[in-house]
Design a protein around this nucleic acid. Structure first.
Lengths: 188, 188
DNA sequence: CTCACAGCCATACACCGTATGGTAGCGTGT
DNA sequence: ACACGCTACCATACGGTGTATGGCTGTGAG
């Protein structure tokens, strides 16, 4: 196997997606180009295409890589309110670690079809604890996810005042609103 | 004033932003290029730059144009619950008329600094009616806006099942959750 | 009549994603 | 030992993008 002219080790998908994620985190999605990425890896741009179908496929890969790095709270015996808060904060933390990519994901449908991700399973378990009836589970979890995403999106873009203490309070306001809404019973 | 080679009337900003909005609505933001827009207007690409500073400025213009077309509900004497629902649905309707642009806006901070828009004033008035204390107004309206945006974003991207009746129910679920959350008192 | 200027255009540059086709070296079958 | 195919890599090129630069042209003011 012919090895790259200027590198000892052959390219790997992990190496590619890690470098791409680095570029995106550093300069936003628009800072990721096949040419810059290739330069970063000391490789010819076209070489990337032997590991990745297209730039879109690369971005999907990067999203998956980032998603795998999100650490969810453990599903212990705290009250559902506590667990819901913990999940929201975990998600929030992850978003702040990869803000540019996060925004990209939420503006591109094909990226979040990952409905079987463990995040969703955990959320559903919590909602069951909260007494949401089975036939409302899907809808309610969709809505909650959308709420939290909306909040985080606002924050990442500075729609909210960028005092970190203040954004913390906003996230709290949001979660408490949700909790109280859920405590009030099922929706119609 | 030298008039374009192939057109009787000179270019105008309104004409430009209307055509651009048409292109965006038809094929998404990525379908808008200075060259295609110029072709649409039967004009040389560089001519656009005499009316618009850059493509970013053009997009800002397009966003403003679309925003101006949103029709808000009248501020009448219905209950705050009713008015909140009406506002949410109006916003939702507007999003569905310009889905691609709407997504673009919410992924680009500089586009929604329009905090003095009448939408915000109306929302604050409604929240006052709901008994939200003055020093929570800003935060609460931010949160509500984020919630509804999150829901709409989910819907526009098909995260929600795309049965329109089902998405209607989701939006309802969301709004009722918010209303119940507000009825439960102010957040901490 | 002159001259500034607004509106428009032609050309060119740097960058992008990627189609096409070529090359170097390893693994295997005979 | 030899040929072959296959994998990884690369060079070149095409059509697209935003836009800098500078030139043309017809109108209105002095």
């Amino acid at each position: 196997m012919a090895v790259s002219a200027r590198r000892g080790t052959p390219l790997s998908i992990d190496e590619i997606s890690a470098a791409a994620l680095r570029l995106v985190d550093a300069g936003g999605v628009e800072a990721l180009s096949m040419r810059k990425l290739a330069a970063e890896l000391a490789v010819n741009p076209m070489s990337l295409y032997h590991h990745v179908e297209s730039k879109d496929a690369l971005l999907e890969l990067v999203c998956a890589t980032a998603a795998r790095r999100m650490s969810l709270p453990t599903d212990d015996d705290r009250s559902w309110q506590e667990q819901l808060r913990a999940l929201a904060f975990a998600y929030h933390r992850h978003a702040r670690e990869h803000p540019a990519l996060w925004i990209y994901v939420h503006a591109h449908p094909q990226m979040v079809a990952n409905r079987q991700m463990s995040l969703w399973q955990l959320l559903e378990r919590i909602l069951r604890l909260a007494g949401v009836p089975e036939d409302e589970l899907r809808r309610t979890s969709d809505v909650l996810y959308a709420f939290v995403s909306g909040i985080i999106l606002s924050e990442l873009q500075g729609h909210l005042p960028d005092d970190p203490e203040e954004t913390g309070r906003s996230l709290n306001t949001a979660i408490e609103l949700i909790v109280r809404g859920l405590e009030g019973g099922a929706a119609g």
